[in-house]
């Protein structure tokens, strides 16, 4: 049972192979190693299909490495990691439950009483700016509002590690910027370690302390960059015009472009399909 009291994530020489339905062995990631310090905001970028989600699955304990180890707080992950919350591109809200019940679900799963869970859920809905929407159902909210609910649901358990798999991938540009700012604001308050997957390099640089670039499939770590932009960063729209941002962005893009092109060339032979959730 891994414990995230200090949320240090150590990924050591992890390889993951899948058995395809056809019976062949498919290597999704190969010999991946990197570390996320407690309280650090770490973004992972890489072309679609390079194994980013797979890596995340192994940190949360949903999946097991074929080789290598994943440690959280110094302990090898075995079973679902404690103190972890997840946020996906889709909102992962249960359609038959109200907003309040959806947010309260985390504490209920953790064993909290219903009254306490609801009180905490109310508090978190207020923090994400959704006071007054407690009794709505997910389908009655806009995309951005549902994202906020998902954020409250992810943070209510006060995770030591927050894992986000392209959380804003499906949003329009403006909503995405607003949500990014709110995420940073909430993160500053409790400072969990964040593992943030995206294929939007600007987003990664604007938000993260560390950016891990992965190669195209089978994924390995190509390079790790520390982002020394000062915090608090303020608005993500404005930071994009700062010289240091542009410098880092160019530097990382040079590394990444090669991989994206390679991944594209591989799919361009057949019908070009837009990967759904990278």
């Amino acid at each position: 049972m891994a414990d995230a009291n200090n949320g240090r994530i150590e990924i050591e020489s992890v390889t993951k192979r899948f058995l395809t339905p056809g019976g062949e062995v498919f290597t999704a990631i190969s010999d991946v190693s990197f570390t996320v310090e407690p309280g650090q905001f770490c973004a992972v970028v890489g072309p679609t299909g390079c194994g980013k989600s797979t890596t995340l699955g192994m940190v949360s304990g949903l999946d097991r490495p074929s080789e290598g180890t994943v440690k959280v707080g110094g302990k090898v992950v075995d079973g679902i990691t404690d103190g972890v919350s997840f946020m996906f591109q889709a909102d992962a809200l249960l359609p038959w439950k109200t907003v309040l019940a959806n947010v309260a679900l985390g504490p209920v799963f953790k064993g909290a009483g219903k009254a306490e869970a609801q009180a905490r859920a109310r508090d978190w809905l207020r923090r994400v700016g959704l006071a007054g929407f407690e009794d709505r159902y997910p389908h009655q909210l806009s995309g951005g509002m549902r994202k906020r609910v998902a954020m409250a649901a992810a943070l209510i358990n006060e995770p030591k590690i927050l894992m986000m798999d392209e959380p804003f991938g499906a949003l329009d540009v403006q909503t995405k910027a607003i949500m990014s700012n709110e995420l940073l604001g909430l993160w500053e308050q409790s400072r969990p370690a964040v593992l943030f997957i995206t294929h939007d390099l600007d987003e990664a640089v604007a938000l993260a302390d560390r950016v891990v670039v992965m190669t195209s499939s089978p994924g390995t770590v190509k390079a790790v960059y520390d982002i020394d932009l000062p915090r608090p960063r303020g608005s993500v729209q404005e930071i994009r015009f700062e010289p240091r941002f542009l410098e880092l962005q160019h530097q990382i893009w040079d590394t990444l472009r090669e991989e994206v092109e390679r991944a594209y060339a591989r799919t361009a032979g057949g019908p070009v399909t837009e990967g759904k959730a990278a």
Partner: peptide
């Protein structure tokens, strides 16, 4: 069924039984 819903509940600490009863069956 959507993978996200099931995995989010798992990561929140719900056991397989709980996921089955509260997420999968509905």
């Amino acid at each position: 069924l959507p993978r996200d819903l099931i995995e989010a509940a798992r990561v929140d600490g719900a056991s397989h039984f709980r996921v089955f009863r509260s997420v999968v069956l509905p």
